[in-house]
């Protein structure tokens, strides 16, 4: 009798780029829905706009480069870039800024370096930083979350605001927009107001801002699914969140009224989205396990340093880009020893 012999690997996992990207998109759905719930129609509109721009730019560049379009467009990586970018920008951003940021991300940051797998920087974050540096006023005008918003805009009004920069009669931009919780905390701390006083405002929830921390929870949920499906490894998210938490708690215990509680940093801004979805980008992150720990921890520390002492209220995007630059060097120095070769040259 003949038994079929099957060589290893004996269990396989979905390993194509398309499937990985599909899982990333699926796990971003809860967070996107939560953001839509708290911040209104602007979120899905920008997601649609960014996706269309990303696919169009990718198609145009591939045509100019004389590459086949189908494999590059079907791998969904442009859609993931567009989605991450759209989740990072304010809900009422003028449409041409979304188009500009996404087109820059795909054309300059991704395709000019050679397309997927060759880009040294995370495209979504580079596009976001381009806009943040160039148009700081537009990029910091966030909406208040749903429970604090006295003048919620319906679909038609949101469309008019994004595409025509016009608001319903009687409303001004200053009246409907507000700074993010991170921004508020930073501004008021700079005025030497104590944290216990700052937190008297109804803006705050348990750890971060109301609404914001719940969005963070849903991103965390999606990230845990990615971890469970082994699409990302635990090294980068854990080291990034851990370093951020340790650093912020250290300063918090030094002066509780001047440095916010550690979980405030975890549940504010782009921390959770960044830890699970952005820093873990397999192209731009480190590949060795030791390197990933160092990479994640450095992102956490840089984020804390810029948020606390730097010029911008949130810093996940800057931290990710800075560490993207360092990733090849980190990989070079953390290459695992080849089995059978001694460390002290007794090979």
């Amino acid at each position: 009798m003949r038994f079929p012999l099957i060589s290893s690997p004996h269990s396989e996992r979905p390993n194509s780029v398309t499937q990985t990207m599909l899982w990333v998109i699926l796990t971003l759905v809860p967070g996107s829905l939560a953001m839509t719930w708290y911040f209104g129609w602007g979120i899905p509109i920008h997601i649609a706009l960014a996706t269309l721009t990303a696919i169009a730019s990718e198609g145009v560049v591939l045509k100019l480069r004389g590459r086949r379009m189908a494999p590059a467009l079907n791998d969904l990586s442009a859609v993931v870039t567009a989605l991450l970018f759209a989740l990072a920008i304010p809900p009422l951003l003028p449409w041409w800024l979304t188009v500009l940021g996404t087109a820059f991300a795909i054309i300059v940051v991704k395709q000019l370096y050679g397309g997927i797998g060759y880009n040294p920087f995370n495209p979504a974050m580079a596009g976001y930083v381009l806009l943040l540096v160039s148009y700081p006023v537009e990029m910091t005008a966030w909406l208040p979350p749903e429970m604090l918003n006295h003048n919620p805009l319906d679909l038609e009004q949101t469309l008019a605001a994004i595409f025509g920069s016009t608001l319903p009669a009687g409303l001004s931009w200053d009246a409907i927009t507000m700074a993010t919780p991170l921004d508020q905390m930073r501004t008021q701390l700079d005025l030497n107001i104590m944290i216990s006083e700052i937190r008297q405002s109804p803006l705050w929830g348990d750890f971060g801002g109301q609404g914001w921390e719940w969005v963070g929870n849903w991103f965390l949920l999606g990230g845990l699914v990615l971890l469970f499906k082994r699409i990302i490894s635990w090294h980068i998210p854990l080291s990034m969140l851990g370093a951020l938490l340790v650093f912020s708690m250290l300063f918090h215990f030094l002066d509780q009224e001047a440095y916010p509680f550690g979980l405030f940093h975890i549940f504010s801004g782009g921390t959770l989205l960044g830890a699970f979805f952005i820093a873990t980008d397999p192209v731009t992150a480190c590949t060795t396990k030791k390197g990933q720990l160092l990479f994640g921890a450095s992102i956490g520390i840089i984020t804390y340093v810029i948020r606390t002492w730097g010029g911008y209220p949130d810093a996940v995007a800057f931290a990710v880009l800075l560490m993207n630059m360092a990733a090849p060097t980190i990989d070079y120095y953390t290459q695992p020893r080849v089995f059978g070769h001694g460390e002290r040259g007794n090979d």
Binding site: V108, L130, V133, S134, Y135, P136
Partner: peptide, 15 residues
């Protein structure tokens, strides 16, 4: 016309 600040800054020179 809203100027793109990045073009004036050093990264704009390299790009």
């Amino acid at each position: 016309f809203k100027g793109m600040l990045l073009a004036i800054l050093p990264p704009g020179a390299f790009l």
